[in-house]
């Protein structure tokens, strides 16, 4: 039973890492501030969600698992708000979006 839970944890953590790598890759490969924000907010949010899920399976109590979920929700809120502020700041400064 414990081995099955451990296996799930490992799978979730690896999947989370794949999304974090995608976020970083997007940050490096995407051409302008707006597209980079897409990569950061969305890929990292899913990556963190998967890692939190993997860690919550290993939590000793419900309170610890709840704390992890709370962290994820706060990061979600902060990520969405900050990406809005950065995009809005760039827009107000007249930074043109990259066009293919």
């Amino acid at each position: 039973m414990i081995a099955v839970i451990d296996l799930f944890s490992v799978l979730l953590l690896i999947a989370g890492a794949v999304f974090f790598l995608a976020g970083t890759l997007g940050l490096l490969r995407f051409p302008d501030v707006y597209t980079r924000l897409h990569a950061l907010t969305k890929a990292d949010n899913v990556g963190l969600g998967l890692i939190i899920a993997g860690l919550a399976l290993q939590a000793e109590s419900w309170a610890v698992a709840g704390k992890l979920v709370l962290i994820w929700l706060l990061v979600l809120l902060a990520g969405a708000s900050v990406s809005y502020l950065v995009a809005n700041g760039a827009l107000k400064r007249g930074i043109r979006p990259w066009k293919s």
């Binding site: 794949v18 999304f19 995608a22 976020g23 890759l25 997007g26 490969r29 995407f30 897409h38 990569a39 969305k42 890929a43 949010n45 899913v46 990556g47």
Partner: peptide, 8 residues
């Protein structure tokens, strides 16, 4: 997340 990861 999947969509943006695929593109990246």
């Amino acid at each position: 997340g999947i969509d943006v990861a695929r593109r990246a």
